[in-house]
Design a protein around this nucleic acid. Structure first.
Lengths: 240, 240
DNA sequence: AAGTGGTCTAGACCACTCA
DNA sequence: GAGTGGTCTAGACCACTTC
């Protein structure tokens, strides 16, 4: 994408933009069959590898769907794909040019409840680390981080100084490239959140709950509560 | 991803999984230099094109960063990438196995305010289409769709039957593969929203505002308001 | 000058689909 | 059997980085 109105710098790019423009012009509606690799070889005077690379790239991006023995087809563009960066609260605040400060409210070890044991695939009552941290942006509280950590994944977790390095950064160093899922909700704030985040009367919270795991175990589950009036998630939309 | 624990089916896949496992094992921490294309040719007995393809694929996925003349390096895994499908409300409701119904509340043409003109890059007072639709899931209201449409992108927009085809599907057919940005917020509901979405007292809204454009013009801006207690956005996390 | 990645060529073998 | 995409080879030229 983003290449729609750029001059291509490579033979592959030429083919790409030509195909993309035919699709957006409507010459090739969703479902239509586009040129085959051999046809592109003749039309553009390139080798089959180059024609293949152009089509394969468009297929990877979701613009085309390719079927062995049949051909390449314009994929139905029936869903946006929304992409959002969710990173270290400290880094995001710093990226906005603001000052970050973290306050540890709770850092303790305790037995898992039945529900938590299920999430972490542990037995009920197994030990979990529980961390609660309040993040400030220029002295205004912007996130309450409520995090559970699997001791098997990070046995030394509670000995960290979380006012210096965030839990996010520490866990990412221990278990880089995790998989995960997240849930975004709008919730009515509890009295505790109302006080900790300095919420206005009736101001809701934007909650992000994130569970991440590696091949071997569930690493952490975190709930990030943001003040609704002072926080929004912004992201880009990509076609698929 | 997702290939971490699969047996590779191709030479490229072999190289990929070997590199990935060395990274996740910690042999190659973030910032480390990985094998060069020539080294991989020798180690795996493949051609340079195959070694290149493996490294290029990992670079595309954000696992590696490649620098011409220098080498390939493990990318710092300091941010999650959150990916979410945002599609047609009707299709999403159907995908949950529920019944979808749409009710048109407003469909009109009116002059743009100054702020709207800015968004659509039109002059103030230029004509805009304004559509308000309430979507039901099994007879419970789940979304209020408040949409502005650029008449230049969809001149025939108001003549559609939006109880049969959603505005989303109609616009996607007219201008497939748009670019865009979206903002997600938690907001206190207005009285109007409270009534239309059957909200509980103090129940907040999860708002998604989406602006989409093509190469030639801004196509549409839509605000989707969801009841906080009955709606959440769920997505997958991918490393970058 | 040596090593790196970016790109491309002109072949090749295979598995698949359709008629 | 003819056409399709999936994958791979053994070269090539180029731009770039470091020494």
């Amino acid at each position: 994408m983003s290449e729609t109105s750029q001059r291509p710098t490579s033979r592959k790019g030429e083919i790409r933009t030509e195909i993309l423009s035919r699709i957006t012009r409507g010459d090739w509606p969703p479902g239509a069959r586009v040129s085959s690799e051999h046809e592109l070889m003749a039309q553009f005077g390139v080798s089959r590898m180059t024609a293949h690379a152009a089509l394969a790239e468009l297929a990877r991006e979701g613009v085309l769907r390719r079927v062995k023995g049949l051909g390449s087809f314009v994929a139905p563009p029936l869903a946006h794909l929304t992409v959002m960066n969710v990173g270290d609260p400290a880094e995001e605040i710093a990226a906005r040019g603001a000052l970050h400060r973290a306050e540890v409210i709770l850092a303790a070890e305790r037995p898992a409840t039945a529900a938590e044991a299920l999430v972490f695939r542990l037995s009920e009552g197994a030990s979990l680390f529980h961390l609660v941290i309040r993040h400030f942006e220029n002295d205004a509280p912007v996130v309450l981080e409520d995090r559970l950590v699997n001791p098997k994944a990070a046995p030394d977790f509670l000995n960290q100084d979380f006012s210096r390095q965030t839990a996010f950064a520490y866990l990412m160093a221990l278990a880089p490239y995790p998989q995960g899922r997240h849930i975004i909700r709008a919730t009515e704030a509890t009295e505790r959140l109302r006080a900790l985040l300095h919420l206005q009367p009736n101001e809701p919270c934007l909650e992000i709950e994130r569970t991440t795991w590696t091949a071997t175990c569930v690493v952490t589950q975190v709930r990030l509560s943001h003040p609704g009036q002072r926080f929004a998630l912004i992201g880009a939309i990509e076609p698929r």
